[in-house]
């Protein structure tokens, strides 16, 4: 066992599965010799050869479309889109084909494939390198959208994503690629897709988050504890399909719910989670549901990035407001 970062966990899970399943291939821009611009596929081409770790031409629609073709033939592609902001040329393939091939062919053709992409802000990157557009994909029936928040989950969820019989969009919160290390045993054990994880138990308020924002959420929970407020923290992990039962169970216990997300607010996952809580647990609520999110603006360039990103203080302020509600 060794302490690894989130990005190393992605790498290890891919290597594990490629070792054990000859049908798994990795492909994308710069994934080979360069090991990916973030090094997610570092060393994989050396280990598995250029036939299984494929440097592609620069064309995302091609990457997604070709992966669909391969997956239909029993190959399991793990395709990298270099940054989530560059997934849009592939949107057509993802939405019009990847998401609905099983349905369209009544199960005759299925697509066991993964599209990975680093996403989210906070790393001082240029335009289109910082957005959180997970809701665009979560909205599409037929897609699974998974977002690991830490190294252990990245390892286990990546394995599950590759083994899943259906297409999975795997979004990696790049801000936390290297900020924490976990002891992770490289034993091929997966984490279940479609499950929320209760990261921290509490009784007064449920804080719901995913991806990088979970780190601010945990810090806030710690500070709230010092103020005598017991926060339960849920890592959504699979943002689609949503494990709403785990969330409802928690909210029914605490009576208060707050969602923390980096994405803009309108039409977001936070909106969906809040609506579900309102529909199914409104009678358990002691206060209105709270949301801390990015603004409904274009993600600013990095000089204003800090102004955009939800902070621990913003989370705390909102949580206190909910606690004080009478």
């Amino acid at each position: 066992m060794s302490a690894i970062t989130l990005i190393e966990a992605v790498n290890k899970a891919m290597a594990y599965e490629m070792e054990n399943d000859q049908t798994v291939v990795a492909l994308g821009e710069d994934v080979g010799a360069n090991g990916g611009v973030f090094r997610a596929t570092d060393g994989l081409q050396k280990k598995f050869g250029p036939d299984r770790v494929i440097d592609t031409p620069l064309a995302e629609s091609m990457i997604a479309g070709v992966s669909i073709g391969m997956a239909a033939q029993g190959i399991k592609p793990v395709a990298e889109i270099q940054f989530m902001g560059f997934i849009f040329p592939a949107f057509d393939q993802i939405v019009c084909h990847m998401a609905r091939m099983r349905h369209r062919t009544r199960g005759r053709i299925t697509l066991p494939m993964v599209i990975r992409a680093p996403y989210g802000g906070g790393i001082h990157a240029p335009e289109h390198h910082s957005e959180s557009t997970e809701a665009l994909f979560a909205h599409i029936p037929g897609l699974k959208v998974v977002i690991p928040s830490n190294p252990s989950r990245a390892y286990g969820l990546m394995l599950a994503a590759i083994r899943d019989p259906d297409p999975v969009i795997f979004l990696e919160p790049k801000r936390v690629y290297r900020i924490v290390k976990h002891e992770v045993e490289d034993n091929g054990e997966e984490y279940p897709i479609g499950c929320c994880f209760v990261d921290r138990e509490g009784t007064d308020i449920t804080l719901i988050s995913w991806g990088a924002m979970l780190h601010e959420t945990h810090q806030a929970a710690e500070k709230l504890a010092a103020e005598g407020i017991s926060a339960e923290v849920i890592d959504v992990a699979t943002v689609s399909p949503l494990d709403i039962d785990t969330i409802l169970e928690s909210v029914e216990k605490t009576g208060r719910a707050m969602i923390v997300q980096e994405a803009p607010k309108a039409g977001s996952l936070g909106s969906e989670i809040a609506a579900e809580i309102a529909e199914k647990a409104v009678m358990s609520l002691l206060a209105p549901i709270g949301r801390v999110s990015g603004y409904d603006t274009v993600m600013p360039y990095y000089r204003l990035e800090k102004q955009y990103m939800p902070t621990v203080d913003r989370v705390l302020e909102e949580a206190r407001k909910i606690m004080e509600y009478k």
Binding site: Y295, D296, T297, P300, L304, Q307, Y308
Partner: peptide
């Protein structure tokens, strides 16, 4: 000097939707 935080909002539309105005003030 870095732009003011309201610059995140002020060029999105010819007229900022009322709903987003609240977020602008908050920012």
């Amino acid at each position: 000097a870095p732009d003011k935080p309201e610059a995140m909002f002020d060029y999105l539309y010819s007229e900022l939707p009322a709903r987003t105005m609240e977020q602008r003030q908050y920012a």
